[in-house]
Simulated assay, not measured.
Amino acid sequence: MKKQTSIFLLAAFTVLLFACSKKQAEEMIPEDPSAVTTENVTYSNFAGALFQNKCSSCHAPNSSMSSIWTLNGLASIKNDTRVANAVLVTRSMPQGGSLTTNERTLLQAWVDKGMPQ
């Protein structure tokens, strides 16, 4: 039984290690990055694309980490305080720390504004 548990844990760790790649960092390109500022940032013009590109490969429904948190649009982000904490406070997400300083600044401004649509 101990050997089976060890094999399971090793397999789970391997899946988690390779499920979220740094390639996600390259995929986040807003329509016009200069148009999004801390004053006008919204879910529609920035945060939605960021979560989709940086989080959905692991946290979409039926994905590897969906049992911990599932990305289902704006409501799923607003209704779970762990999301903002993991991204902005502890910086444990996204795995590999693939957010730029500008992305963190805009995301913090979006959270501070009450996460507008």
Rank of each mutant, 00 (worst) to 15 (best):
M1N: 10
K2S: 14
K2L: 14
K3I: 10
Q4G: 05
Q4A: 13
T5I: 15
I7Q: 13
I7S: 03
F8H: 06
A12Q: 04
A12H: 04
F13M: 09
V15E: 00
L16E: 05
L16K: 00
L17I: 05
L17A: 15
F18R: 04
F18S: 11
A19L: 02
C20N: 07
C20M: 07
S21I: 08
S21V: 12
S21L: 11
S21W: 02
K22W: 02
Q24L: 09
A25R: 13
A25M: 08
E26G: 05
I29Q: 15
P30V: 04
P30E: 00
E31K: 15
D32R: 10
P33M: 13
A35F: 12
V36I: 15
V36Q: 03
T37K: 10
E39T: 12
N40E: 05
V41S: 09
V41T: 11
T42F: 03
Y43W: 15
S44Y: 05
S44L: 06
S44H: 04
S44C: 05
N45W: 01
N45I: 08
N45G: 08
F46C: 07
F46D: 02
F46H: 10
A49R: 10
L50R: 00
L50P: 01
L50G: 03
F51W: 08
F51C: 05
F51N: 01
Q52I: 00
N53P: 02
K54D: 04
C55I: 09
S57G: 09
H59V: 01
A60K: 13
P61W: 00
P61E: 10
N62T: 09
S63K: 15
S63E: 09
M65Q: 06
M65K: 08
S66N: 10
S66C: 01
W69Q: 03
T70C: 03
T70H: 04
T70R: 09
N72C: 01
N72P: 01
G73Q: 06
L74W: 06
A75M: 09
A75T: 14
A75F: 06
I77G: 00
I77R: 02
I77S: 00
K78T: 13
K78P: 07
N79F: 04
N79H: 09
R82C: 01
R82D: 01
R82I: 05
V83S: 01
A86H: 13
A86M: 12
V87Q: 04
V87E: 02
L88V: 14
V89S: 11
T90I: 14
T90Q: 08
R91F: 07
S92K: 15
S92V: 13
Q95T: 14
Q95K: 14
G96H: 10
S98A: 07
T100K: 13
N102S: 12
E103C: 11
E103K: 06
R104A: 12
T105D: 09
L106S: 08
L106P: 11
L107G: 08
L107P: 10
Q108N: 15
A109C: 11
D112V: 02
D112F: 04
D112I: 06
K113V: 03
K113Q: 12
K113Y: 02
K113S: 10
K113G: 00
G114N: 11
G114T: 08
G114F: 12
G114Y: 07
G114R: 11
M115P: 02
P116G: 06
P116A: 06
